[in-house]
Design a protein around this nucleic acid. Structure first.
Length: 423
RNA sequence: GGAGAGGUGGCAGAGUGGUCGAAUGCGCGCGCUUGGAAAGCGCGUGUUUCCGCAAGGGAACCGGGGGUUCGAAUCCCCCCCUCUCCGCCA
């Protein structure tokens, strides 16, 4: 959520910033509701002030006295009016809240112009794409793939997109997770093992609700949501709290399985390990002082990049243009790993600065040393990293002529062997 | 899951219909005191929001939501959470 004051006081600047995201927002409607709300607020507050004043007078009067009885009669009318106006105020307040939830976060000045994914800027490229075998196979065509990654039985037991990982398949997943968490810990992130179901308030604070509920698995009868990413429980850790300024920045990482319904996905995007309903991911999250958030974003991105470097996987960094930024992000980098068999880039991490957008919804604040007042923190997050696509690239890029997959040196201590075999 | 008890400010803890944003203690801040400190004394110490250039003023908040009443921290209803006992169980 944006600061309502920002919209109230500088609507044109807000309009211009939203235009960069190429989103349609009826700001005039928001402003009109805001004006109506304030008018009602004044009425209600005046009535309440009158009630309060009368209350003090009546407390001093003898209970059954004629003056007292007269006052009760008088205040009955005021009370009725206050109730009626209060109801109107509440309705308007609800409308305003809904309207505010439809206003996106504003892009940072450094975000490039652009409308479509094609206009994202290739910010950096690491590793030689041409160095990996030109005859590499898509991972799902590697002989024996289905023994280690059993989609058919997963479909039987649960449904499409819920594979079983078997033998070396399970082992490589565990090795990657362990490696990621260890590396993230070295970079200063405190490991957290969060709940993987969250309530509606948490899902709302991070922006999954109200309009993305179709993307989450929901439980009945408890109305809990399976987390689409560890970002949700992790961000909500400090929801409705005020932390000490000296505690910032706070670095945390968490592994969780992630659950996504992925309604509407199709085609090559969903082959093999590219897109699953359940997958494993380590998420990096920072709560930082607003003055440092862009430096912290760059550092977080480098922390994620280092993982790919240590695995020896070629990748590139995209700086997302205004039109390809998410609703709640101010700036975003995507890390994409080169998938030699599919001859395409796969997104494995998305590193974003939300500025105060999430923090306002979630009411996560710090007490400023200067003013003594609570201020909203900035939140930053990114994957560090998502397992299946890293795995896909690993399988494709490191496939040997003999059908085995060479394990990167950094991963060998975790995997326990130098080669993964499909036998 | 069943029975009972309870949720009040940073913490502890009073308050069972009116002048209560809320006693008292602790903590914290400032001042006095002191060579310095402790103790002592004095003053202060929540959040949100609206109006205002400001000074300042108004309103809301006693787990959450609804209700009764002229008036609710206090009475009633629903929900959430914590604790104790029982049951069940990795």
């Amino acid at each position: 959520m944006l600061d309502p004051k920002l919209i109230r006081e500088t609507p044109d600047a807000v309009r211009a910033a939203i235009a960069k995201k190429h989103l349609e927002v009826d700001l005039d409607a928001v402003l009109a509701i805001d004006a109506a709300w304030r008018a009602l607020l004044h009425e209600v507050e005046a009535l309440r002030a009158r009630q309060k004043g009368a209350n003090a007078e009546m407390a001093a009067l003898p209970k059954g006295s004629p003056e007292f009885i007269a006052k009760v009669g008088e205040m009955k009318a005021v009370s009725a009016q206050a109730k009626e106006r209060e109801l109107a105020l509440k309705e308007t307040e609800e409308k305003f809240k809904q309207a505010m939830l439809s206003v996106p976060n504003l892009p940072h000045a450094s975000v490039p112009e652009g409308r479509t994914p094609e206009e994202n800027v290739v910010y950096a490229t690491h590793g030689e794409v041409t160095a990996v075998s030109p005859s590499a196979l898509p991972h799902w065509e590697i002989p024996g793939f289905e023994k280690l990654f059993d989609f058919a039985r997963g479909a039987k037991v649960t449904g499409a997109g819920f594979p079983f990982y078997v033998g070396d398949g399970a082992r490589i997943v565990r090795a990657l997770l362990h490696f990621f968490l260890d590396e993230d810990a070295k970079a200063g992130y405190t490991e957290v093992n969060p709940p993987i179901f969250v309530n509606a308030a948490s899902a709302t604070a991070t922006g999954q609700l109200p309009d993305k509920e179709g993307q989450m698995y929901e439980t009945t009868p408890d109305q809990l949501y399976a987390v689409p990413t560890a970002e949700v429980p992790l961000t909500n850790f400090f929801r409705d709290e005020i932390v000490e300024e000296s505690a910032l920045p706070i670095y945390r990482c968490a592994y969780t399985p992630c659950f996504r319904r992925e309604a509407g996905s199709y085609g090559k995007d969903v082959r093999g390990l590219n897109r699953l309903h359940q997958f494993d991911k380590v998420e990096l999250l920072k709560w930082v002082h607003p003055s440092t958030s862009y430096d912290e974003l760059d550092k977080l991105r480098l922390d994620a990049e280092r993982l790919l470097q240590k695995l020896g996987l070629p990748y590139r960094v995209l700086l997302m243009c205004g039109g390809d930024l998410g609703f709640s992000q101010s700036k975003k980098y995507d890390l994409e790993v080169w998938s030699a068999g599919q001859k395409r880039w796969l997104e494995v991490s998305s590193c974003s600065n939300f500025e105060a957008f999430q923090a306002r919804r979630a009411q996560i604040r710090f007490r400023s040393k200067d003013t003594g007042k609570p201020e909203l923190v900035h939140t930053i997050n990114g994957s560090g990293l998502a397992v299946p696509r890293v795995l896909a690239a690993l399988l494709e890029n490191n496939l040997q002529a003999d059908g085995r997959v060479k394990i990167p040196a950094a991963l060998v201590p975790y995997f326990g062997k130098e080669y993964l075999t499909f036998a």
